[in-house]
Simulated assay, not measured.
Amino acid sequence: MKKACFCGTFDPVTQGHLDLIQRATRLFDEVVVVIGVNSDKHTMFPLDQRKKWLEESLKDLCHVTVQARAGLATEICKEIKANVLIRGVRNGVDLEYEKNMAAMNHLLDPSIETVILLASEDKMHCSSSNVREFLRYNRDVSQMVPACVAKDLKEGGKA
C-alpha cells in the first residue's frame, strides 16, 4: 500500500491545496494531510480552525485524513508509516526551493520519496500568502479558498 503525506501550514487552506490533495488520491492508496506545528511560525489562523477547514473541505474524499504534528517532515512520514512526501509547486521559485528540500529530506531519510506535483494552471495563484495579503486589504478571497473558509471569513468580517 502506498501511503503519502502532504505537509503544510495551510494558513489558510486554498483551492490550490485541495487540487493537489484530490490529485494525490488518484496516485496513492492513502493520503495523510499534516498541518505542521511550528512554534516559531506566526500564523494568521489558529491551528484548530485550520484543521476544521481542512476536514470540512476534504470530507468527501476517501482515504484522506487530517492531522496536526510537530517535527521534520521525514520524521512525520516515519511516524505515520508514509513512504512518500508530496510537495506542490506553482512556479520556478517554488521548484528551486522544493528541489533543495527534497535533497535535504533524502539526506535525512533516503527511504522517503518526494513527489512534486505541479499546480494546475488555474490554481497557480492560490497560495496562502496571497490569501493573507488579500485579507489584509479587505479583498475578496472566495475564489481562492474552499467555501467553508470563505463563509467563516465572511461571518467573521475578514472577507
Rank of each mutant, 00 (worst) to 15 (best):
I116A: 04
K81E: 15
G157P: 07
E56D: 10
G156Q: 10
D122W: 00
K41Y: 11
I76H: 07
V66Y: 01
D60R: 14
L118Q: 02
K3G: 01
A24Q: 07
M44F: 12
E98W: 06
A159W: 15
R139V: 05
C126N: 13
L85M: 14
L153N: 04
P146Q: 08
H17G: 04
V31E: 14
E113H: 07
S120T: 08
P46H: 13
S129P: 01
F134N: 08
V84T: 14
D122Q: 08
Q49D: 12
V84F: 13
G92W: 00
D109E: 15
E79R: 10
L54D: 08
L153M: 03
L108N: 10
H63Q: 12
M104V: 13
K99Q: 13
G92L: 02
T114N: 04
K59C: 10
R136V: 12
W53T: 05
D140E: 05
R26P: 00
V89C: 07
L20E: 02
F134G: 06
V31I: 14
K52G: 03
K2A: 09
A159S: 12
L20A: 07
S127K: 10
K41F: 09
G88H: 04
T114R: 03
F10G: 02
S39M: 02
L72V: 08
S128Y: 01
G156F: 08
Q15F: 05
A159F: 11
R87E: 00
H42S: 15
P146I: 08
I86C: 05
V115C: 06
T114S: 09
N130L: 09
L72Q: 04
K59F: 04
T14A: 06
A150R: 04
E56S: 15
E155H: 11
E98H: 01
Q67Y: 09
Y137T: 01
M44R: 15
G71M: 09
L47G: 00
R50P: 08
A147R: 14
L20V: 07
F6D: 05
